[in-house]
Design a protein around this nucleic acid. Structure first.
Length: 668
RNA sequence: GCCGGGGUAGCUCAGCUGGUAGAGCAGCUCACUCGUAAUGAGCAGGUCAGGGGUUCGAGUCCCCUCCCCGGCUCCA
């Protein structure tokens, strides 16, 4: 039999007989590698270890402690989950069960509309451990489409996937190509003859050689999920789990979850007394407490300052309006679901009355300001800025802390400019956005460009193309990673969104910059050009924070509650050691306050020094000062800087003030 | 909106199969006056989310509404 040449990751090559399996290649390299191997990458495609290699190829062995290895492990664990569920719930239908970030899930439909309870998770997990122990091999086979349909005669979701395989990408990724589908089966009695199939799934693979290779997993939660993500389709029962290459990696993952929970903005909001959601007000409606409102004010003040310098005009508009405004804007046609229902006023004899709506967006108001008189090209670009509070009737299941609320304030602006100005305006706008966000401590961004949705969209193709090109050019000029969201734009224009990664690597959509072809038309706004003709301006919507509430939450989590000096609601806490030091402590406090530092004093009457230090530390105050006899004598303070557990004694007050001044100016 | 889990003192939670509500922390008062992450004692605090029902009796069982949590769908 002819030999083939395989190339290993280190560049070395070896000749092996055609049909050698990836597992055999691993064994030929080393026993340890063979033992660790889960799958193999052959010419970039991850396949099972027992699949023969038929031609020259680059091959890499996939081990558990790699991203590819974990994916195989998680996917295989999902199969074990499905087997456990079908064992415990005869008649259960299984749908899809992919690996996801940090874990996996599997969707089921249980007989008689049964549901998983939290206790059921424990039983399922116990059954999974039995399956792992049983050391069932994963066996791949390929069958024709019809045979596949027959195999899953009583599995409607699998049949659906096979039937839609040619039409749907999801299907293709599940089963492979063409009219052949691949199956993976686990046999009940791997060693002692044919005990029949324990579980067969439609799957592209690859999988670990046998279930005993799994083990460091844990089922985490049950949830509902729509079949194929369609909210009009059936609701399935989903079980989520996490799986890792070792017990230790699993423990570390669980520990990370605990740490992430500690920086949850809802928790920090209560602990640091920043905001709350009184039940009396209603879902998704926050109140900001003094410290939270102070942080928010600092955020807003700085933003105003930057906008003023950036050539924006400040405007204001009311929270409610007669319905005709949103009829003209089209919001009642395409955004009515997101709006609070109207209140009807002045129902006189006729009982007709006038409907007023809470505004879900600020744009129509700004347009009315533009339209309040005739505009000249000399005024363009006209940039109107407002911290505009809007209300959106979010569906009850989606409200979430400050990141998804029903009442929020946008740092909203609308830029009216000529067609010719658009590209330059977008370019400078993007620079403005990124600079501002960096000032708030976010540094890791990527951009996303959303283009015309297929089959719909106002404006001509040329207009779309021009605006999209201008957005793309502006984005590319930033030198950041740019992803394409093909067809993801709104029907009224393309957009760029700025995505930011926070301190623990989560990404958040922040700023959106949206070109709008529709509203200028609907409101028929125009300006007089240098040619003395009337022209329709281009309109750009943009919000940099998105919503202040959300941005507040993102910063709070980004900093884990430890706001940098310039944002910290309390910058300095002064602690006299004993009552006799009060007078000196007051002097220090007054001096720092007069220099503009937000300073509090907690006297010795309230608690021991240790307790007061602990309190201030837990409130994440950047500087905790302790003053006692020595300090009075020498005109110094004891300085506890946040993040350091070594206090400095005897620091001259002038030196402290210098340090505080530097820290506050650093904006970081 | 949909699926699942919840709502007991300001916070975190206990309260078995229905039999008259409890702890820690926080708060207040008093004592302590202390040099770097919790001093001690005492006091006060709850229409058990709200409403209806079953029952001799409901925090506990049933129904409705509100609110929260985890997902799905949607989104700043």
């Amino acid at each position: 039999m002819a030999d083939i040449t395989i190339t290993l990751p280190d560049g070395s090559t070896r000749d092996v007989p055609k049909g050698t399996t990836a597992g055999e290649v691993a064994a030929s390299i080393g026993r340890g590698l063979a033992k660790a191997a889960l799958a193999a990458t052959v010419d970039g495609e991850v396949i099972d270890l027992d699949r023969p290699i038929e031609h020259d190829a680059s091959i890499a062995i996939v081990t558990p402690d790699t991203p590819a290895g974990r994916e195989v492990l998680r996917h295989s664990t999902a199969h074990v989950l499905a087997q456990a569920v079908t064992d415990l719930y005869p008649g259960a239908k299984y749908a899809i069960g992919p690996a996801i970030e940090d874990g996996f899930y599997y969707d089921f439909e249980l007989p008689d509309d049964a549901r998983f309870s939290d206790e059921a998770l424990g039983r399922v997990e116990a059954r999974m451990r039995e399956i792992v122990k049983a050391d069932q091999p994963f066996e791949r086979s390929e069958v024709g489409r019809d045979e596949g349909l027959a195999q899953f005669a009583d599995q409607p979701y699998k049949r659906d996937i096979i039937e839609k395989v040619d039409a749907s990408e999801i299907g293709a990724s599940e089963v492979g190509e063409g009219t052949v589908v691949s199956l993976y089966r686990n046999r009940r009695n791997p060693t002692g003859g044919d005990g029949g199939d324990a579980f067969v799934d439609l799957c592209r693979g690859p999988h670990v050689p046998s279930t005993k290779r799994l083990g460091a997993f844990k089922l985490t939660k049950v949830a509902g999920a729509y079949w194929r993500g369609d909210e009009h389709g059936p609701m399935l029962q989903r079980i989520y789990g996490t799986a890792w290459e070792s017990k230790q990696a699993l423990e570390e993952h669980l520990h990370r979850l605990v740490e992430a929970e500690k920086r949850d903005h809802r928790r920090l909001g209560a602990e640091l007394d920043l905001f709350s959601f009184p039940e009396e007000i209603g879902s998704g409606l926050a109140v900001f407490h003094p410290k939270g409102a102070l942080v928010r004010k600092i955020m807003e003040d700085y933003s105003r300052q930057r906008h003023e310098a950036g050539g924006y005009s400040f405007v204001n508009s009311p929270h409610i309006t007669k319905s005709n405004l949103f009829e003209t804007s089209g919001h009642l046609d395409w955004f009515a679901d997101g709006m609070f229902p109207p209140m009807t006023l002045d129902e006189g004899g006729g009982g007709v009355g006038t409907k007023y709506y809470l505004k879900p967006m600020n744009c129509p108001f700004h347009i009315l300001i533009f339209r309040s008189r005739q505009r000249s090209y000399r005024e363009l670009p006209l940039r109107m800025f407002e911290f505009g509070t809007v209300y959106r009737y979010e569906k009850s299941g989606v409200v979430h802390g400050l990141t998804r609320v029903r009442g929020m304030t946008q740092d909203d602006a609308h830029i009216f400019c000529s067609k010719e100005e658009m590209a330059g305006e977008l370019h400078s706008l993007l620079i403005f956005v990124l600079e501002l966000l960096r000032d708030y401590g976010l540094n890791d961004f990527y951009l996303e460009l959303s283009t015309k949705p297929p089959g719909k969209g106002v404006g001509t193709d040329e207009e779309w193309e021009e605006a999209t090109d201008a957005l793309r050019a502006a984005a590319q000029a930033m030198g950041l990673e740019l992803t394409l969201d093909e067809g993801g734009g709104a029907f009224y224009g393309p957009k760029i969104s700025v995505q930011a990664r926070d301190a623990i690597g989560r990404t958040w959509q922040l700023s959106t910059i949206q070109v709008d072809f529709q509203l200028p038309q609907r409101f028929d706004i125009e300006y007089v050009g240098a040619d003395n003709e009337r022209h329709q301006p281009i309109m750009i919507h943009r919000a940099l924070f998105g919503a202040i509430e959300r941005f507040f939450a993102i910063l709070l989590e980004h900093y884990a509650g430890a706001f940098p000096m310039w944002l910290a609601p309390v910058q300095v806490t002064v602690l006299p050691v004993a009552d006799r030091h009060d007078e000196y402590a007051v002097q220090i406090t007054d001096r720092l306050r007069s220099q503009g530092f937000r300073t509090e004093m907690h006297d010795a009457h309230t608690d021991t020094l240790g307790a007061r230090i602990r309190d201030a530390k837990m409130q994440k105050v950047p500087y905790v000062l302790v003053v006692g006899d020595d300090d009075i004598e020498h005109g110094t303070v004891g300085v506890n800087e946040r993040g350091s557990d070594e206090p400095r004694r005897g620091v001259p007050v002038a030196e402290l003030v210098d340090q505080l001044t530097t820290a506050a100016a650093a904006r970081a």
